[in-house]
């Protein structure tokens, strides 16, 4: 069970007709380091045309640039980050981040960690975890460039987060996933349903650990860039039934997630999850979870 035809047929059953897409490059201004108007003006003077992304607070599409926006003084000074449009949404869904203790469980390369620090205005504390050392080096460079001061990085598997002996107010689970064809042109050649199931299992283990380290009134944001329901709606349905978590309503860009997958009826609250098929952005799925009762 693999190949383009297999997956495209699955997507059609889920209500989306496959199309080739090429989302526009996006940047996110680090509001703690610079005023938005100043960054926009400076980039415009260098010949970069930006377009405000209506559903993001600090996000802009790069309409035109004669050079890489990853090689400007403003970028090197940490005034903005290059961050995919849809990837900018999950961190924005937390409520009241200032002074909170936050876990970024699968943090590298750090785009969302920097965004969290920006939203927290460098207050509180973030524990950022990742397993592989080269990815931690990229993460630490990213934090230094963007002047992040409130983060401790650990080389630790998200499934062992309880080793930190901390309970967290907020947990970001941008979990390892199967990805999608937008970010990897060979995706259809490489992926099989077995990979999807393997990733779904890993994600459940991470969700289980996150529920353990979450404070009773805490929030989890669960996000994947997978288009496969096993890693998305079906995993959240499992978390509701197994981990005593509930899905919270969120107000943001994106379509409502499905509550019926391949004739299987899921918990009705899954409609509060958001699912974005590739098009304007890459594909993404996300939701906010809290402990029940």
């Amino acid at each position: 069970m693999s190949g383009k035809e297999f997956f495209v047929t699955r997507y059609e059953k889920l209500g989306w007709k496959y199309e080739d897409v090429e989302p526009k490059q996006a940047i996110r201004i680090n509001a703690i380091n610079a005023r938005k108007t100043d960054v926009i003006r400076r980039l415009q003077l260098s010949g970069v045309e930006l377009e405000k992304i209506s559903f993001l607070e600090n996000g802009y599409w790069v309409r035109k640039s004669g050079f890489s926006v990853g090689a400007t003084s403003e970028y090197l000074l940490g005034l903005y980050s290059i961050q995919e449009t849809a990837a900018q949404i999950p961190a924005m869904l937390f409520t009241k981040l200032n002074d909170k203790v936050v876990l970024d469980a699968c943090a590298a390369p750090g785009g969302k960690t920097v965004q969290l620090a920006d939203l927290m205005r460098n207050t509180g504390a973030i524990a950022a975890l990742d397993v592989r050392r080269p990815r931690l080096i990229a993460l630490s460079n990213h934090l230094e460039r963007c002047r992040v001061k409130n983060t401790i990085v650990y080389q630790l598997d998200a499934r062992q987060a309880s080793r930190l002996k901390t309970r967290f107010d907020r947990v970001l689970l941008d979990v390892p996933c199967s990805g999608n064809f937008v970010t990897d042109k060979d995706w259809f050649k490489k992926r099989t349903i077995k990979d999807v199931e393997k990733n779904a299992k890993l994600q459940r283990q991470i969700l289980t650990e996150a529920a353990k380290v979450l404070k009773d009134d805490g929030e989890i944001i669960y996000a994947t860039c997978s288009l496969e329901p096993e890693e998305n709606e079906l995993n959240v349905d499992w978390a509701i039934r197994t981990l005593n978590l509930q899905v919270e309503e969120i107000s943001c860009y994106g379509g409502k997630a499905l509550t019926s997958i391949f004739r299987k009826q899921l918990d009705d609250s899954i409609r509060h999850c958001r699912s974005i098929w590739p098009g304007l952005t890459q594909g993404i799925f996300f939701c906010k979870l809290k402990k029940s009762g």
Binding site: A125, T151, I152, V153, Y154, L156, L164
Partner: peptide, 19 residues
């Protein structure tokens, strides 16, 4: 570090606070 990080840091950290 800041005070909050100082209180919560464990010795196995990779990097922390302001490098």
């Amino acid at each position: 570090l800041n005070e909050k990080l100082r209180r919560s840091i464990s010795k196995e950290f990779f990097c922390a606070g302001t490098y």
